[in-house]
Write a protein that binds this DNA or RNA. Structure first.
Lengths: 215, 215
DNA sequence: AATAATTTTGAGCAATGATTCAATATTCGG
DNA sequence: CCGAATATTGAATCATTGCTCAAAATTATT
């Protein structure tokens, strides 16, 4: 009974506790991302996910409540990651506002291109989920957006960004543009060389928001 | 036999031809747009559409081959309308390039805001349909995009627009931004006053593409 | 009014695919 | 190797809903 401890009451009945093999939970999530990206949420078959994850159908329901739950976990994970990355960026004082803005774009860009299947899933399903789940469908998504707006507002206060721009509208403008471009890239990568897309997003969005270019 | 004429061979067997009442075909389309916008294509029930259109379930299948067919007709109609409007704009020689560009934005904006439910349907389903139907899912959509690119290219040739911008990327940038903003407006109109959205789209997109603002 | 043609109807068929759960397999401490 | 606890399985269940089609209703013609 080597697992005994004075804090034993805090642990799950820890002896005769069988360890789960491999990491089915993660395998299922990865497979789901692929299948959702390929077929869209509604045409995605649980059986196909099970097959791809090398797991039985029943196992899926051990780790996830249902099909929707899988989708939610996918969002939770990617927006959590984006939030954390943006969080460590937002308070850096060694960057100018423009550098910070560029870094934000790079960060979003990198995250999505490194997870292109997830990007497709988000591009396809997020709008619908936001509607269904009117109030905050993901804690992290809201936090992420909050941080993004913070950067833009800071830029406005420092008169680097155009104060006539509505921050909320700019947010949708940028994320919307992002979404279409990332999806297009993920579907036909050859038509959308990454460097080109990144450069264009930066240029187009920046010179729409910089004070620079006022009449 | 008052319907007889020397062109009688051109008419359908015109006697004993019963006229259909009202306009079920259109009623069904309108109801579908509402239901699709409300619930999304997959959660939309044919029975609900029938109810809203004041029509029996069976009638729907007289006018449309199946559920997908209805969606296609919705796209065909809105993109056809957009194409026609843009077509009469593209060759006008009484406008400067900037005026023409602004008019294009206004035209898209007006069409979508006058048909906000359709706008939501497009925002939600188009990506998926484009994927599924890789090659040209709507004749009019492709034509519309072609005209849009023509305007931008003309602007570039006249050195009004920045020649370093990739036209294809700019197209996705603009339409993507549009999509998110129109959807957001349609869902929570109070948070997105139309005039403000329109002005911001124009400003943000223009000053990203005008030669004006180069460093 | 009778007939014929067309339109409308909606209960029920059929297919689909998410989810369940009783049975089986695996692991672990002893 | 045993027994207890946990993990895995996938055939069977169950609910859902798109779509069909035989019957009923409507309209036009004579």
């Amino acid at each position: 009974m080597s697992n005994d401890s004075i804090f034993g009451f805090l642990t799950f009945n820890s002896f005769t506790m069988r360890k789960k093999e491999g990491n089915k939970e993660e395998d299922i999530l990865k497979a789901s991302i692929e299948v959702f990206a390929q077929s869209g949420f509604y045409d995605a078959k649980i059986s196909k996910i099970a097959e791809l994850a090398n797991v039985s159908i029943g196992s899926i329901y051990v780790y996830y409540k249902n099909k929707d739950d899988i989708l939610n976990k996918i969002f939770e994970k990617i927006w959590g990651s984006l939030y954390n990355n943006l969080d460590s960026l937002v308070n850096r004082s060694d960057l100018t506002m423009v550098e910070k803005y560029d870094a934000m774009i790079d960060m979003i860009f990198d995250t999505f291109t490194e997870n292109s299947a997830t990007a497709i899933v988000i591009a396809h399903e997020q709008q619908r989920l936001l509607l269904r789940n009117k109030e905050s469908f993901t804690e992290y998504y809201d936090k992420f957006v909050g941080l993004g707006e913070k950067i833009v507002k800071e830029g406005i206060k420092k008169k680097i960004f155009n104060p006539n721009i509505d921050v909320n509208i700019f947010r949708h403008f940028l994320l919307g543009a992002f979404r279409d471009l990332i999806t297009s890239w993920a579907v036909v990568p050859d038509e959308f060389p990454l460097n080109l897309v990144r450069r264009n997003i930066k240029f187009l969005s920046k010179y729409g928001i910089l004070n620079h270019n006022q009449e």
